[in-house]
Amino acid sequence: MLSALWRYRYFVMASIVGELRGRFARSRLGLLWSILHPLAQAAIFALVLAEVLGAKLGGIDDKAAYPMYLLAGMAAWTLFSEIVSRSMTVFIEYSATLKKIAFPRICLPVIVWGSALVNHALLLVAIAVVFLFLGKVPGVAWLALPLGILLISVFAFGLGMLLGVFNVFVRDIGQAVGVVLQLWFWLTPIVYPVSVVPDHLRWVINLNPMVPLVEIYHEAMVFDRWPDFAPLIVPVILSVVLLVLSFMVFKRASPELVDAL
């Protein structure tokens, strides 16, 4: 499968460009919508929680600290949720193409992965501009973000492709995952810091592999600190296991994939 991906690398790259163009066809703002949606969601959270409910970020007196915390967390979560959600439905979306054109089917989740990374890069640029308007100059710790991007995208890709294969055969998975992602979002410290979680619920945070990955963004973008690498061991192992398992399941189910569609 890896050699097939290499042979079809130009097809993958052209498909990523085509997907980005097609997603916002006849739209005047085009790719800007992929940036505006998470920014608008973070702005709504900041308005409701910071301005209306008076939420603040502990240890920092800056009024803009909480919106920056939200933007950093939303950036990490948007990358994860986009890859998982799109990978889960990509085989169903491209069912007609799979039946008419012969190409390695593994290309489809990789195309989703690539387009999500492009969207994420544009989002980070937009967030950096917002930070400058808020008086926060990106520091050297931002150089840790590629590590967060790599770990989150690999974890999301492995999980998304695994769910994508299962979703072809059992369509209920697609409905259930949407609910699970919403619950997972609120169980991850994105709109609240870890410090406010009650002690009797800390075990939920400790079991959540997205927590240390999102904290890479928080530490680098908000606090200008390098992440603690010790908590990343479990997410790294889990990401590798999911990636290998997803390739094994995909290879086993690939001959029956088109028939199930």
Rank of each mutant, 00 (worst) to 15 (best):
R105M: 08
R105H: 12
C107Y: 02
C107A: 13
C107D: 08
L108K: 06
P109S: 02
V110C: 04
I111K: 00
I111G: 00
W113I: 06
G114R: 07
A116C: 02
A116H: 00
A116I: 00
L117V: 01
V118M: 07
N119M: 12
N119C: 11
H120P: 05
H120C: 09
L123M: 10
A126S: 10
A128D: 05
V129D: 12
V129N: 10
V129P: 06
V129R: 08
V130Y: 01
L134T: 11
L134D: 13
K136S: 14
V137S: 13
V137K: 13
G139E: 08
G139Y: 06
G139L: 08
A141G: 09
W142C: 09
L143S: 14
A144Q: 04
L145M: 13
L147T: 07
L150Q: 05
L150W: 10
L150P: 04
S153A: 13
M161Y: 05
M161C: 12
L163N: 05
G164M: 06
G164Y: 03
F166R: 08
V168I: 13
V170K: 09
V170Y: 15
R171D: 05
R171Y: 08
I173V: 15
G174I: 09
Q175E: 15
V177A: 06
V177S: 06
V179P: 06
V180Q: 07
L181R: 05
L181F: 09
Q182Y: 12
W184V: 12
W184L: 15
F185L: 11
L187S: 12
T188C: 02
T188L: 02
P189H: 09
Y192G: 00
Y192S: 01
P193I: 02
V194L: 14
S195Q: 12
V196A: 01
P198M: 10
P198H: 08
V204F: 10
V204Y: 07
I205M: 15
N206T: 13
N208P: 09
P209A: 11
P212L: 03
L213Q: 03
V214F: 03
V214T: 11
E215T: 12
I216H: 03
Y217A: 05
Y217L: 03
Y217T: 02
H218G: 02
A220P: 03
A220W: 01
F223W: 14
D224E: 06
P227L: 07
P227I: 03
D228T: 14
D228Q: 15
D228L: 14
D228S: 15
